[in-house]
């Protein structure tokens, strides 16, 4: 289904509940009543076109194509990604950690296992946080500066200190994905369930959901944002050469 402006927002969300995440990250509150997507976007000062592009890319991977995002200011995409970061760091990851910790209280036979798992997960959180920090402290500011420079007439190269190349970022994404993948394998294949199945399953569901979400997130960065940045870099380069 292609999402369009004249559909009712509530129908869109009911059709694909995953889109709730998109709506939340664009700071659109619930309580849509009978309003259409267009009306809801207008009320909340969200660009309709931008919403449709993000929502459709999220809903149907075939739609995702960085060329379609050329017309939007790159800071909109960055703001969206940063809102997603907040959601992971402030809520999703602490929630998984809390669940693992809870297991600690309920069992003693497997205590060693739980400690091991917590350790492993904490290591993952550290890796994840430092990745996000680097994005927010050096990659995103670099991109914003790049876009400012392109808008102005002053084509000096942006400060590019401590910024790894885009391809290194790609590597880092995959290492973060691998750790989460391993956590899942260990839980499913090798760890005897320490507590009531229901709690344990809940944890596994949460990890799967986080993994899926992070994959979508990485896809937006790697297949939309980075190609756009490469285009911007090329544009700057050719403008500098012209002078």
């Amino acid at each position: 289904m292609q999402i369009t402006g004249d559909l009712k927002m509530v129908d869109v969300v009911q059709h694909d509940i995953q889109l709730l995440a998109v709506i939340q990250r664009l700071n659109i509150p619930l309580g849509f009543r009978e309003r259409t997507v267009k009306e809801v976007c207008n009320i909340n000062n969200v660009d309709l076109d931008f919403f449709l592009h993000i929502a459709n890319s999220f809903h149907d991977k075939e739609f995702l194509d960085f060329k379609k995002f050329r017309n939007f200011p790159v800071d909109w995409i960055i703001q969206y990604l940063m809102n997603a970061h907040r959601c992971y760091v402030d809520y999703r990851i602490p929630e998984i950690e809390r669940q693992i910790k809870n297991f600690e209280k309920q069992v003693d036979i497997n205590e060693k296992n739980i400690a091991l798992l917590l350790d492993f997960f904490r290591k993952y959180i550290r890796e994840f946080n430092s990745h996000i920090e680097q994005e927010e402290k050096s990659v995103f500011p670099y991109i914003l500066e790049l876009s400012d420079i392109l808008k102005s007439d002053n084509f000096d190269s942006p400060r590019r200190d401590k910024l790894p190349s885009i391809s290194e970022f790609h590597d880092e994404h995959s290492s973060i994905e691998e750790t989460l993948f391993d956590l899942k394998s260990i839980l499913l294949k090798y760890l005897p369930p320490p507590v009531t199945n229901c709690l344990y399953n809940n944890l596994i569901f949460d990890i799967f959901r986080l993994e899926r979400d992070l994959l979508d997130h990485a896809e937006l960065e790697e297949n939309v944002l980075y190609p756009l940045v490469k285009e911007m870099e090329n544009e700057l380069h050719s403008k500098q050469n012209l002078r």
Binding site: L116, D182, K189, Y190
Partner: peptide
């Protein structure tokens, strides 16, 4: 094993008593 990272392998090895804590 379906485990890719070193820290994941360490967890597996301890769980299966291949190495000790």
């Amino acid at each position: 094993l379906g485990i890719k990272t070193v820290s994941g392998l360490t967890v597996y090895a301890i769980l299966n008593n291949i190495i000790q804590m």
